[in-house]
């Protein structure tokens, strides 16, 4: 599914990477421990997390995930958003908790 459609279906805020929403995403990975994410997430997946440390951008870029979705509107420092923009990482934000956000995704036949 295109990120564009995911943003619309899940009512996400686009914090960085607005120009890359044509990108296709497939599959999900959900974790906040970045060592687990490095070991488990796959290229092209949507990664759901509450972790907002700057390192999420380096890891998303390294793993080539389709986008990071920060849930529960966890506060994100401007430096993290700027780095995402600089690295071409799509950074999205959901106002809902992870479960509700992912449930919507499933209902949208992702």
């Amino acid at each position: 599914m295109k990120l564009e459609k995911i943003v619309a279906e899940l009512d996400l805020k686009v914090l960085a990477g607005a120009a890359q929403l044509e990108r296709e995403a497939q599959g999900c990975y959900i974790a906040d421990l970045l060592s687990c994410v490095m070991a488990g997430a796959q290229p092209g997946q949507l990664w759901f997390t509450l972790q907002t440390h700057l390192n999420i951008i380096a890891i998303a870029s390294m793993l080539e995930v389709a986008a990071i979705v920060v849930t529960e509107e966890a506060p994100i420092a401007p430096a993290t958003v700027e780095r995402a923009a600089a690295e071409g990482v799509v950074l999205l934000s959901s106002s809902e908790p992870t479960y509700e956000t992912v449930a919507k995704l499933i209902r949208a036949n992702y």
């Binding site: 970045l34 060592s35 994410v37 890891i59």
Partner: peptide, 16 residues
């Protein structure tokens, strides 16, 4: 350490 250890939580040594 996976729990509360810098590399466990943040995966990489933060550049800053």
């Amino acid at each position: 350490r996976p729990a509360k250890g810098l590399l466990g939580v943040l995966g990489l040594w933060p550049s800053a």
